[in-house]
Design a protein around this nucleic acid. Structure first.
Lengths: 109, 109
DNA sequence: CCGGAGTACTCCGCAATGTGTAGTAGTCTT
DNA sequence: AAGACTACTACACATTGCGGAGTACTCCGG
């Protein structure tokens, strides 16, 4: 199965969710997503999503040097981002519920 | 909100689910999906998905004339289609669960 | 009898977005 | 010095849902 198509439109949401509790940089966000169960996410997708969300005004961004490698570009949620997360979560939940019902309708009384 | 991106990769599954209990033709599948809650699905998407699934060998197809309008192209699940439905349902459920957890992790103890 | 609505399908080009690959660059280990 | 891990960027590509135009059939109202 190809999960990559399932991610369409949901990766934004996943990234926002992962940044909810603490700021993070791309490579770290990638690890958090994989740890959460999205093991097939590609790194380019995460970096791209972060850039898109930043450009959409949902994220703040600041660069910090690291002693264990190259510099890190941190991202964090701002007000817009939190609102987007909240709204998208609702949309997703509604959508997922709809699909659940559709997949269950096996035995119509 | 734009639900169109959420449908990516899931419309296949939704169409298969709708055809599970009874064969159907494009226009009818569209109505069933909308009735199930997927109100924003566009007709071209459904026709396209049906063609794709048919070409992938998951559907049977036969044309039937209608007395209330143009002919209808019926589609039905074959063995491959049922297997695909089953497998895709599992993939979807797993994915949806993963997202649920991700969206809930608000209060880490 | 003609126009419009509803039914039913096809084709085409577009837009969004996740992916693979390549490239740059820093740190650390062997 | 070579290689692994970290960290990010850029580009071209594939998939797939959507909008719009076009075809065609049936039925109804004026």
């Amino acid at each position: 199965m190809d999960t990559s198509q399932l991610l369409k439109g949901v990766l934004d949401l996943a990234v926002l969710a992962v940044l909810r509790d603490a700021d993070g940089y791309g490579y770290d966000v990638l690890r958090r997503l994989r740890a959460a169960g999205l093991e097939d996410v590609a790194d380019a997708s995460v970096y791209g999503t972060l850039r898109r969300l930043f450009q959409a005004g949902a994220l703040t961004s600041y660069v910090q040097p690291s002693e264990e490698g190259p510099h890190r570009k941190y991202y964090g949620l701002n007000k817009t981002g939190r609102e987007l997360l909240e709204q998208s979560t609702k949309t997703w939940n509604h959508f997922a519920d709809t699909m659940s019902v559709l997949l269950l309708e096996k035995e119509a009384a």
